[in-house]
């Protein structure tokens, strides 16, 4: 067995250096990757291993300019994510990756960028904000349209507002259900898209969230005239290996761990409406 071949399956240990409680069930952790920097494209993911519990795919949510700091936002939804969310600084996790395709941050240059994210779907696009901010002059208007269930479920809220202020992003937030703390928009995220005043012929749209949400977002984007080949989405599937060998993430001929998770709408559209593929 060659060492290179082994690396595909074998994680690298990395210590947790910080942890931020984002919402009731979601945390952001930073891992020290100085010993094996994770150079990634926004949209890519890693396999995170919790000792004794197993591996799970998690999008990278950090700044691509800092491969020595691996940042993940994780929501506790299952057997492996529960212990991952419970880790504390000093503990060590296993990491493989990065894997998969990234958002079209280069293709989007010289035009407007519209990011539409909902719920935990904000985590995989967070590196896009860093990438756009790093070369802000290459983009026209940048729209960040974010939906969440309640104000308490909004991820990165303060940071997004800081980013929007510092880099001139048009940030719009909406929630499905308001509470006393919220005097902003109440309604679904597609409505932010209806209201955003961008030029559909010059815009690249990136959407990430539950599949049903993305279905409505894409429908609205197409209605506004964004071409199918300028719409990108991130598909989520059960993944066990992330290297195209376990078969779990197949969607038609795609292994979404390799030709996804990020893909263009015109590549996805014919399968999107066939249920249960």
């Amino acid at each position: 067995m060659t060492a290179a071949a082994l690396d595909l399956w074998r994680p690298v240990p990395m210590p947790v250096v910080s942890k931020v409680q984002e919402t009731a069930d979601t945390v952001t952790i930073e891992l020290d990757a100085r010993d094996s920097p994770v150079r990634f494209a926004p949209g890519q993911f890693t396999m995170l291993y919790a000792f004794g519990h197993g591996e799970v795919p998690i999008s990278i949510s950090g700044d691509p300019a800092h491969p020595e700091r691996l940042v993940h936002t994780i929501r506790a939804v299952g057997r492996v994510t529960n212990p991952l969310v419970a880790v504390e600084p000093g503990q060590v996790l296993g990491v493989r990756g990065p894997f998969g395709t990234g958002w079209p941050v280069h293709d989007a240059e010289d035009g407007e960028v519209v990011v539409v994210a909902g719920g935990i779907g904000l985590a995989p696009v967070r590196p896009v904000f860093h990438a756009l901010a790093a070369h802000r002059e290459r983009y026209e208007r940048v729209w960040v349209l974010v939906g969440a269930r309640t104000p308490a479920d909004l991820l990165y809220r303060e940071e997004l507002e800081r980013f929007a202020g510092a880099h001139g992003f048009d940030l719009r937030l909406t929630v499905d259900h308001a509470d006393d703390t919220w005097d902003g928009p109440v309604g679904v995220v597609t409505r932010l898209l209806e209201a955003a005043d961008f030029d559909p012929s010059r815009a690249t749209l990136m959407t990430c969230g539950p599949e049903i949400m993305m279905r409505f977002v894409v429908r609205e984007a197409l209605r506004q005239g964004v071409p199918a080949e300028k719409i990108w989405l991130s598909m989520e599937r059960n993944m066990k290996c992330a290297i195209g060998l376990c078969g779990h993430c197949q969607w038609g001929a795609d292994f979404l761990c390799r030709t996804g998770p990020v893909m263009r709408w015109d590549h996805a559209m014919h399968r999107f409406d066939v249920g249960g593929l």
Partner: peptide, 21 residues
């Protein structure tokens, strides 16, 4: 197609195995 299963030995080692799925 395979899945992975994680088990722990009595000595405390964590075993990461794949099996046909």
């Amino acid at each position: 197609c395979t899945t992975v299963e994680d088990t722990t030995t009595l000595a405390g080692d964590a075993v990461h195995a794949r099996r046909w799925d």
